[in-house]
Amino acid sequence: MNALKIPVKVATYEELVPQVGQPVLINDKPIALFKVTSGEVYAIEDKSPHPKGGVLSEGLVSGHYVFCPVYDWKISLADGLVQAPDEGKVQTYKVEVRDGDVYVSL
């Protein structure tokens, strides 16, 4: 039986600063929220996939990508894929914005 994915309120839309990561914790999972300049909000796991890790919410955001602050890996906020020549993937999560509140489903 699949567990029901219930959206969890994590922030208000207005408190998210464009191109600045916002770390949140949901059920002991570190999640990074990003509001891009076009207004969309993304949620990805807050750890880079390379062996030494890296806190992605501290990374530089450009367009729909975040750059790992440790090794400068370019990671898509939309699908979590690390861009070539590097390889890897981070978990992405569904985001909903309703009535000015931001919800994430794990």
Score class of each variant (00 low, 15 high):
I44C: 09
I44T: 12
I44H: 07
I44E: 05
E45I: 08
E45W: 06
E45N: 13
E45R: 14
D46A: 06
D46W: 02
K47S: 14
K47W: 15
K47D: 13
S48P: 12
S48V: 04
S48G: 13
S48W: 01
P49R: 06
P49H: 07
P49T: 09
P49M: 09
P49E: 07
P49V: 07
H50K: 04
H50P: 03
H50F: 05
P51R: 10
K52V: 12
K52A: 15
K52E: 14
K52T: 15
G54W: 07
G54L: 08
G54Y: 04
G54V: 05
V55D: 08
V55I: 15
V55H: 08
V55P: 06
V55T: 15
V55A: 11
L56P: 03
L56V: 07
S57P: 13
S57A: 14
E58F: 12
E58T: 13
E58I: 04
E58C: 10
G59K: 09
G59R: 06
L60A: 07
L60M: 12
L60F: 12
L60I: 09
L60H: 10
L60Y: 11
L60P: 01
V61N: 06
V61I: 13
S62E: 15
G63R: 13
G63I: 09
G63Q: 13
H64M: 08
H64P: 03
H64G: 04
H64C: 10
Y65S: 02
Y65V: 00
Y65G: 00
Y65T: 00
V66M: 06
V66R: 00
V66S: 01
V66T: 03
C68E: 00
C68N: 04
C68D: 09
C68R: 02
P69K: 09
V70P: 03
Y71D: 14
Y71K: 15
D72Q: 15
D72E: 13
D72H: 14
D72P: 08
D72K: 15
W73L: 11
W73I: 03
K74Y: 00
K74I: 00
K74Q: 02
K74T: 00
K74M: 04
K74R: 11
I75Y: 01
I75R: 01
I75P: 04
I75S: 06
S76F: 01
S76N: 09
L77G: 05
L77K: 01
A78Q: 09
A78F: 00
D79M: 07
G80Y: 04
L81I: 05
L81G: 03
V82Y: 08
V82I: 11
V82D: 09
V82K: 12
Q83W: 05
Q83R: 12
Q83D: 11
